[in-house]
Design a binder for these strands. Sequence first.
DNA 1: TGACTCTGGGAAAAGCTTTTCCCACGCTGT
DNA 2: ACAGCGTGGGAAAAGCTTTTCCCAGAGTCA
Lengths: 353, 353
Amino acid sequence: MNDRLGDDPELDEEARAPGARTIRDVARLAGVSIGTASKALNANGRLSAKTRAKVLKVAEELDYRPNNLAQSLHRARSMTVGILSNDNYGRFTFPIVAALERRLFDSGIAVFMCNATDDPARERRHIDQLLRKRVDGLIVTARRADRREPIEPAARGLPVVYVFARVDNPDALCLLPDDEGGARLAVEHLARLGRKRIAHITGPEHFEAVRLREKGFRAALASAGLAAPPGACRSGRWSEEWGREAVRDLFARPAAAPDALFCGNDQIARGALDALNEIGLSVPGDVAVVGFDNWEVMTSGARPPLTSVDMNLDALGTAAGDALLQMMAGSKLCGVSRLPCSLVVRASCGAIL
Amino acid sequence: MNDRLGDDPELDEEARAPGARTIRDVARLAGVSIGTASKALNANGRLSAKTRAKVLKVAEELDYRPNNLAQSLHRARSMTVGILSNDNYGRFTFPIVAALERRLFDSGIAVFMCNATDDPARERRHIDQLLRKRVDGLIVTARRADRREPIEPAARGLPVVYVFARVDNPDALCLLPDDEGGARLAVEHLARLGRKRIAHITGPEHFEAVRLREKGFRAALASAGLAAPPGACRSGRWSEEWGREAVRDLFARPAAAPDALFCGNDQIARGALDALNEIGLSVPGDVAVVGFDNWEVMTSGARPPLTSVDMNLDALGTAAGDALLQMMAGSKLCGVSRLPCSLVVRASCGAIL
DNA sequence: TGACTCTGGGAAAAGCTTTTCCCACGCTGT
DNA sequence: ACAGCGTGGGAAAAGCTTTTCCCAGAGTCA
């Protein structure tokens, strides 16, 4: 038996076909059958240590990589999942997807990225493609806006996790941030710092997140024994401009002016900060401000740096990965699960720093 | 022959195994051989119209989807590519990847998303996984910072496109935005509007983009017959804070103050706007400002809305997709290709609106 | 009517692994 | 020395398609 593979003319011959190494090559060069090679590579059957080592050595020298296509075909598990996204901006989706991909990759699963920007036909074609590729599961993400339709029944039997997306089907598993709890966190913090007249400037009411955050806002006020005067909650757009407008309006009569603002997102908060500045009010001296999203580019560019609620999107992504793995292993999971937010304290709320 | 498939007891039997339909099922129910069914589905061999129609009808009724794994195994083309990203933020990568995915999907190719956030070991494992999955090509993206190492030689023979990333290997294809041209666009525009003392506030010098933009800045000044006084170009960080600092410094002696600022990124521009505001200078009245990146959240939140250079990242993504498709079809492409930027004019530069 | 040409469809190999089942060899015990 | 048993490794099927090659039947022409 020739152990010096480096001198084996057969090896040189093989070296010319890169990337196309098969288990046949390994078996032939190791002088064993294909089945034996497979067993050695997978630490599977009963083989002598010598044979096993020989096969592994040859595989290493050939830089052999098993063909996942053939493996998947045989095992009826592709070790891939599809991520269906509808976020054309990517700001929320990206951290989720990144964490998800990391979690799944650590379990040996690769993800197909599919972007179907609110085009139902395109989404159907994507799902069709994923089914042809025999993905083992599906993740569906959306912008927070929409309570979307469940995906096609064709996917029945396939594990599906909706993350940062909500469907009405009670059999579906939806993972979402706890908007209400996040709002409560912010308002409780402000109340604890002694603020008495807390207002809420937020986005369009048709967002469920807006309604939930308002709910949390009111709940926290109530449990802090504070009143929510009429007009203390303003919903508008998600923009800085709206933040500025709302502040100008809220502070038009100084007597009734708030001493704290909880904003529905960091852009609104940023606009609010700018407007307060212009009015001549100091932050956090006269008014404390808390945002939502903890979007670094907004919070750190703001003056003073913005305290903000973090939705822990990466934890959400990791949780979605965990859930999908469980479902792929046979568990039936369903219902709406909301993961906690956290408060990232910076200077704008007037906490001791 | 029973044409009413709805009544066929065999069909009902089959209906219980969802997603597991094979071409055997189609063939059996259509009363033809597997080979014939395949020919009908692929419009391939010579078949009578009747047989073809019969097979297609059965396939439709069964909701049959060919198993891509088996197809790929046979054809030795997986119709998948991997996207290897190192951008942990996603701001630049996301638009590129989205456009890329769209382009490739339209050609029937699915993309594996791999995030290897600057961890070389992780990147190697990702590449290994992709090779096992027998991807037909690879896209490598990076943060603009680094002139990165080419990926492992193991991938030799596999088409690779570097986009928004740069490697020294002359055999590699790199697609990048034309930073220099973008800078020229901005400065020419300012010069055309009559600005005479144009300064440049930009990011860290170790970024190639910073050096190229400065080069474009100086070139455009020269060809407009304007001088670039010493200290007209300041490099620092990519942050709003740096924009504010630099403005305070540049405008310390009003006599030598610029009448226009070209900023290396929108965050710097945003900071500059705020600082100018505080100093009491009007934009664009006293000073015109142009940013870089055309990042919507920055440009539209700014007051006044910010004129900015757009790197056309989606065009870059589409071009990368085109290039990869060509390489997959056999073309050898290499070299560094820079795609044009464009200027998006808003109020901050003082153009007629 | 016989030979020949189409034509439509079938059989089988190939693509790469995994896994089950089985066989042969060598050893043990008497 | 022989029966039996354990052990290591091989053969082959299966997983799902595609494609090539071939055959049978029908039609055509002389």
